[in-house]
Design a protein around this nucleic acid. Structure first.
Lengths: 209, 209, 209, 209
DNA sequence: CATGAATGAGGTTTCATTCAT
DNA sequence: GATGAATGAAACCTCATTCAT
């Protein structure tokens, strides 16, 4: 059992290297197995196919990230219940959430970069859109509440569009931090500026439309 | 001569279809040629290789887009010369530029989507970053001017980072409009909201840091 | 394991036939594999590429030949130590060496003919020159010793040129025997005459210059 | 007419360059035509096929060489009529012939090197053997005369074999001079040594068998 | 004389995957 | 758990040659 664990682990590490270097599509299973010191057949014992191997590399970190995000979204939803229109926005809570996300991102930097920039061709190729969609419904609720609507039904098509964009942009900010900062520390330093930007945008949208 | 034009055109159209369906990497030259009713050899008479064929599809529109953007950047640079700090920002000019860009984008919607979402593996795979870089230096100048700095040299590392992000985001907005609106008219309708967002963000950054 | 050996062997034999018929360059891997009753993919399991397959055919025999030659060169070097100028040349030893070389050549006649006459385009295309170079330094030592020089440094440019030629010619003699005699027996019969020729030439050069 | 001459000449020169660089087989007609500034079709007006183009490059020089050799062979044949066994060999005449050959070789050095080292795949690939065969019958006559035989019929199989070899070697000497000397002058300087070698060999064979 | 388009067959190589052992 | 052989399809690309114009 120990041995098999080790083999699987070696495969995952070798796969990570190859996927990062060549991207999902151009990566060669042969090369991965050779570098892991394992035969192709062995790989097919542990993984169903190329995509499953990719999932073996990025699956864990992805789940962890989802957990972090979801837990914060739940927290915000609770807070939203006490919101009264016109109330001063409290950045504090959101910053804490974002900080947690950034920390998670840099905990498995390689894997997240893989997901974001090198997953084309795999089942994860739409991961960015998926994350944005995940945030979308949450942002919708924030939007109509802050806008003073009675319910989501009052939202216009334009409202929905801009909210969808903002969900996307939130994700893009994290992507940008991940791909343009060399470590967590630096990313956290930039986070405040990014937040200032996104919140400025958010309120500009709330007040102007 | 008539015939040859036609053959080349058929190849380009067949290539466009295949590239859009499968993406650059997975697209098959064989399939492209077969659907164009032409042998592979013929294709290699007109194009050097797969990448050149891709360029044959997207090259023209890309050049046109670059021209539009550059002409507007020159216009803004001139305007910047008369800028005095504290002066009210005039969205008018920028909206006109953005409107032109959106119009161009929807003029060759297929080709730009190809470039943005399906060019991985080709020499155009970094097109988004290239466009962002193109805007970056321009945005730097706007930034330090509006910030009241004497020159670009006063910009901190954080300033540069956030400006780089905003250049990226500007590009992403256009990408979002292109990929989420079904036609020019709809995109132009959403443009104002997007602009409100980005300008809100921009001023928030200018004033807070 | 038995099976795989067999497959590889069949490939090598099929390759030999094709290479002999068409030469390295014009030989088709498709044809080789088809005649071996194997898919191209299988071939690439055993060999890295076309050149490696060619090496699979000629590599063994080539190594064997090199071993034979080198062992004899060592023997001659030892003998040379006791040489005194003017001493009668003893053909005996050299004939024995040459006999061994001829025997080796006819042991794998096909493979050596392949190497010599059909390897253009492969990594073995300069094999004749390589062999000549191998003999060259050895012949230089023989030359200056027999000439009565104190060291190799006394050799003129002309000396070096003619020695280089004689090294080449030695190789050519073996090539000629291989390509113009149908079997070992016949080649050995001609060997004496060839030797008479080369030794006549050798001494003529030693005495006349 | 002037123009067409020029076009043909440009093609020949471009072909020479390409053939020298890549060898007959790997040379590309496309490349040749492109570098000549001419279309493929035009080439096929002047030449029947790839081989004919190669002939266009080397044909002239080859004819010239054949003429030189044949004229000298005729001269030697006449001289041979007055030969009496035991008579001192007069190197003079042969040296003059060889000198002429060397001069011719260096007159079109490129073309002859092409023929000798880069013609594999063309109809000239056996040129060396052809030249040797050309000399062979001539050498046979010299051999039996000097040996004191009454006619060629007295020659043994071994006699014929060694004569064939010497004809080959004669050719190889010229090849060696051509490929190892950088110009005519240097080649002529080495010629005497080479001659000493070959004549030493020749007489050694005549006297020993 | 020369163009330029097109053919069609062929080239070597790579790939993810399977399966008997 | 793992091996190693084998599949079979497809990949991109190059070639000498032809022919209507």
């Amino acid at each position: 059992m120990e041995d098999s664990r080790e083999t699987k682990q070696k495969l995952i590490e070798s796969a990570k290297v190859e996927f990062m270097e060549k991207g999902y599509m151009k990566a060669s299973l042969r090369t991965i197995c050779k570098n892991a010191g394992v035969t192709t057949g062995a790989m097919y014992f542990f993984f169903n196919d190329k995509n499953d191997l990719f999932a073996g590399v990025v699956g864990g970190p992805l789940t962890e990230l989802r957990t972090v995000i979801e837990s914060h979204m739940l927290a915000e939803i609770k807070e939203m219940d006490h919101y009264t229109p016109g109330q001063q926005y409290d950045m504090q809570e959101d910053m804490k959430a974002a900080t947690d996300v950034v920390k998670t991102l840099f905990k498995y930097k390689d894997e997240y970069e893989l997901l974001i920039t090198r997953s084309q061709g795999s089942s994860f190729e739409n991961i960015i859109d998926d994350m944005a969609d995940m945030l979308n419904s949450h942002y919708r609720d924030m939007f109509w509440t802050m806008k003073g609507y009675k319910s989501a039904k009052q939202m216009t098509k334009e409202d929905k569009f801009i909210v969808h964009w903002m969900a996307h942009d939130q994700v893009d900010i994290f992507v940008h931090l991940l791909t343009h900062c060399k470590n967590e520390k630096e990313a956290l330093k930039q986070l405040k500026g990014m937040f200032s930007y996104i919140i400025g945008g958010w309120f500009s949208v709330i007040n102007n439309t």
